[in-house]
């Protein structure tokens, strides 16, 4: 038997990377502060620097590849859409050039750059947080704050249900195709194909909740005891607390400097 694996649960499960091993709430605090700075700065230069900064943080956490893969695609898509919309439609006194119905103005371009960098920087906070934080660690941190363990169940079971239902949907769609139900064809045919896939899927899932409830009840799901955890987070060390304090003080200083 793999005792090394079993006994690894005796200690908090750390990765050895100081940034990844921060408490999930510390990470949340950091990304929120970054997002607020981006919003309050009202400057595209700040937002753009923050976007670059995320890559640094991701590299620090050793997740640069995973983060970049998701964020670059997303950032380019959302950023360019938001920029083009503003560049095309926002009127102003400094027209640059005109084509067809549209007049591109300096104001449109400026607003476009500012807004797209802002939104992309806020998106980055969310993407970074989800890249460097495991859902179960985050839920565990919330439980420590007093959230009932049913919240953890709901969130974590949602992830698994999405996988399970997705697999079943594929299965049903394949069998529908095999039985000759048109899943391509014209719009009406495709809408009609939705029902025989979704119907059995949803009904099966809803009726299975009864067995699930019984199974979880057998595992003492609603036992009155305060539950313990096999896999624990480490106690937040002093330096991490000071670090959070420092981050939050910098935010306050930034606000004072910016608005007073």
């Amino acid at each position: 038997m793999d005792y090394e694996f079993i006994y690894s649960f005796k200690k908090p499960q750390l990765t050895g990377n100081w940034f990844l091993d921060l408490n999930p709430l510390t990470k949340l605090n950091i990304v929120i502060v970054i997002a607020i700075i981006s919003i309050l700065s009202l400057s595209w230069q700040v937002s753009a620097s923050i976007i670059a900064f995320y890559f640094l943080l991701a590299a620090l956490a050793g997740c640069l590849k995973r983060f970049s893969k998701m964020y670059i695609k997303l950032g380019l898509l959302i950023g360019s859409l938001l920029f083009i919309m503003r560049a095309m439609f926002i009127p102003g006194d400094h027209p640059l050039f005109t084509f067809w119905l549209f007049t591109i103005t300096q104001e449109g371009i400026d607003k476009g750059i500012w807004f797209s960098t802002l939104v992309v920087s806020i998106c980055g906070a969310i993407v970074l947080f989800s890249t460097i934080t495991r859902a179960k660690d985050f839920m565990y941190a919330l439980e420590n704050l007093g959230a009932p363990h049913s919240t953890s169940y709901i969130i974590l079971a949602s992830f698994q249900s999405i996988i399970d239902l997705g697999d079943r949907a594929k299965l049903i769609m394949d069998s529908q195709k095999a039985r000759g139900i048109e899943t391509e064809g014209n719009l009406l045919q495709r809408i009609k194909a939705f029902i025989p896939v979704m119907g059995p899927l949803v009904l099966g899932a809803i009726t299975s909740t009864e067995e699930k409830a019984i199974a979880m009840e057998a595992r003492a799901f609603s036992a009155p005891e305060k539950n313990t955890h096999l896999s624990e987070l480490r106690k937040v060390p002093l330096w991490e607390k000071l670090f959070v304090l420092l981050v939050n003080i910098s935010l306050i200083l930034f606000i004072i400097w910016r608005f007073i």
Binding site: A157, S161, I162, T183, L187, M198, L201, S208
Partner: peptide, 29 residues
């Protein structure tokens, strides 16, 4: 209430899968 807790993840998954099947079937919805 007990059953509600177990129905919530199903509801979430149904939302997700609904959206995904729509993409697979290329529906404008």
């Amino acid at each position: 209430f007990k059953l509600t807790v177990f129905l919530i993840p199903i509801g979430i998954a149904v939302n997700f899968i609904g959206g995904q099947i729509v993409l697979l079937l290329k529906l404008p919805l």
